[in-house]
Write a protein that binds this DNA or RNA. Structure first.
Lengths: 216, 216
DNA sequence: TAGATTGTTAATCGATTAACAATC
DNA sequence: TAGATTGTTAATCGATTAACAATC
């Protein structure tokens, strides 16, 4: 899990994928080694924070040398459990659900959406980016049968709580939620939400309160 | 701006839209007043934090009574500058861009996407959820002419840096970015990013390291 | 008035940054 | 070896929580 069994803070977890992205870019550019100081310049973070963060998981660097890019990329990938296969299904064949089904880079990281579910009878049996749309009636059986790990929820708010209630009784491990809802999943099921409209509101706040927003 | 001109932390800003959402729900249910204690129960936050957060912007409550739901909803809406009209354009007529153009709730909050831009000549002149697709050649002129405030960027990573470079020379106020890129915008342009794949990686990490993930 | 609950100050907790000894 | 840079401990900073006087 991590170096000493100690708990990793949310703040650190959120930074891990960003480290992974930057290291991936360095790797692609053929950079062999990097110091925390150099990374800090690229990432708008202190070198100290980078070293602290990484040391929660292990001593990946070498004094006097820095970090080997390929190795560190690999190790963070392991921490994030990337490149092991993850079975997912999408609930909701609307605009957003379809768009996510079309994400080209997901399979590359081992994230495979193997089915879509929708309540609209007209959509059932059709295909979304090559993935078949099933009836919501089949949901629980399908999840069980295929050992689905992650369910993506991309449906309107009104139906969200009902779907969550169904999901909490299944053996899935995580919900990736795009509905405008908070929901307390039971222990054993993790939920990560993307609240798009909240993100837009934050942007809006920042625009209104930007340095010098009053001037000009 | 805020009560005393003091700086509002990122942590607080991120919570504001969530308060707004919960208050909107209470309002819809016809709840008239709520105490920080009750809200705290609903929102998984301490009553103390709620009162602290709100008091950065003003004394919206009343001792012995709590907060009037309608009034507080209204006030947070003002803080977030919701319900004033915001002109936006979308860059990228792909799956994600189209999906966001189809978001029904945006116009309700004053967010209006008035044009889409794409590099694909085949898409130019077509419509995405009723919004016309323009050539990228017209971008700068269009932004200037219509006084566009926010640009949504939903394009592949490869093209993102080039587009950001063009945007930083315009008079827009904010970028809502879905591309897998970080970019330092000049002062006066705010950027808020939604990194979907990072969110999925975080979910993945949490699943792997969930309490009892090792057991069963 | 008495009870409730805010607004706000003080205490605590946690996360970030700085410093430096260890070591490649 | 000397120089560089990590890993890690200590210091600082900021955010959260607790406490309570103010007041409706």
């Amino acid at each position: 899990m991590n170096k000493s069994g100690k708990n990793i803070s949310q703040a650190i977890i959120k930074r891990l994928p960003r480290y992974y992205r930057f290291l991936g870019e360095l790797k692609a550019e053929g950079v062999e080694r990097i110091s925390s100081g150099e990374l800090s310049g690229m990432m708008n973070a202190t070198a100290s924070q980078i070293r602290q963060d990484l040391n929660n998981f292990g001593g990946f660097g070498q004094q006097g040398y820095g970090y080997n890019v390929d190795y560190l990329y690999e190790e963070i990938g392991k921490i994030l459990h990337i490149n092991t296969s993850h079975k997912m299904v999408m609930i909701g064949a609307g605009n957003l659900g379809s768009a996510i089904c079309g994400y080209k880079s997901f399979p590359r990281y081992g994230f495979n959406i193997i089915a879509v579910f929708d309540i609209d009878p007209k959509k059932i049996g059709t295909y979304v980016h090559g993935i078949q749309v099933h009836s919501m009636d089949e949901l629980e059986d399908f999840l069980e049968e295929h050992g689905v790990e992650i369910v993506i929820v991309a449906i309107p708010t009104d139906n969200a709580a009902g779907v969550m209630k169904r999901l909490e009784k299944t053996h899935i491990k995580g919900v990736w939620n795009f509905a405008h809802i908070d929901y307390d999943m039971p222990e054993g099921i993790v939920m990560e939400s993307v609240h798009l409209s909240e993100s837009l509101m934050i942007l809006n706040y920042k625009i209104a309160n930007a340095e010098g927003a009053g001037r000009k």
